[in-house]
Design a protein around this nucleic acid. Structure first.
Lengths: 111, 111
DNA sequence: CGGGATCCGTCTTGATACTG
DNA sequence: CAGTATCAAGACGGATCCCG
């Protein structure tokens, strides 16, 4: 779907069902590790999570850093590019809170 | 993916590759008719377009009004709920313009 | 003729079992 | 516990068909 349209371009990177939820978990809940993401109430499948983390790193939205050698483990952090998706999410929250009954702010209460 | 998270809820409605592009075409280019949407440079397949229009109407994002009887034709307009996705798109545009090279504002120049 | 339904091959998803 | 393999189910994309 190449096109110079910024909305398209953005959707090519984060226009799927899961990527923005991972960003949400990182921004609002400070999550950085694999099992923290699988623990979210939406229950992202593990294969999808692994794929999205790779994809988002490839796109420069997150960066993985090792924090342990044996077994090798790493944590995932947002880059500036990823962090700056925050205003997009904020507007989504406003919109949902106004138009979709049953939504709660902040986005992810401990369940 | 039910959960009270507003971001989830929003993504359930417009978290796919095409819905927000249709909204974009409506907001920025004033498009209202079937063939206008298929004419966009991203070339949405007709079956997907028909499906998304139905879906978005079901979700209350758009409303279809007949403008001709024979053959029956109608045009699609954003509801307030749909219109108010504008700030979300605006933030996406800002983000893309800043972080994805090659994107242009306004989003869809006549190609 | 143009909206949009149908068909079909392909790619993606989601659940879950599995491995190191 | 992080990540991969497997596989069924569904979504997508393209072509074509149909109908007013």
């Amino acid at each position: 779907m190449r096109s110079p349209c910024p909305i398209c371009a953005a959707l090519d990177l984060v226009g799927d069902k899961w990527s923005l939820l991972i960003v949400r978990d990182m921004i609002w809940l400070g999550k950085t590790r694999y099992n923290q993401f699988t623990d979210s109430p939406e229950h992202i499948p593990t294969n999808i999570l692994a794929d999205r983390l790779k994809r988002m790193e490839r796109f420069g939205l997150i960066q993985s850093k090792p924090y342990q050698d044996n077994p090798p483990r790493h944590e995932y952090h947002l880059t500036d590019k990823g962090l700056e998706l925050r205003p997009v999410l904020i507007e989504m929250i406003h919109w949902a809170n106004k138009h979709i009954p049953g939504t709660i702010t902040p986005p992810v209460p401990i369940d």
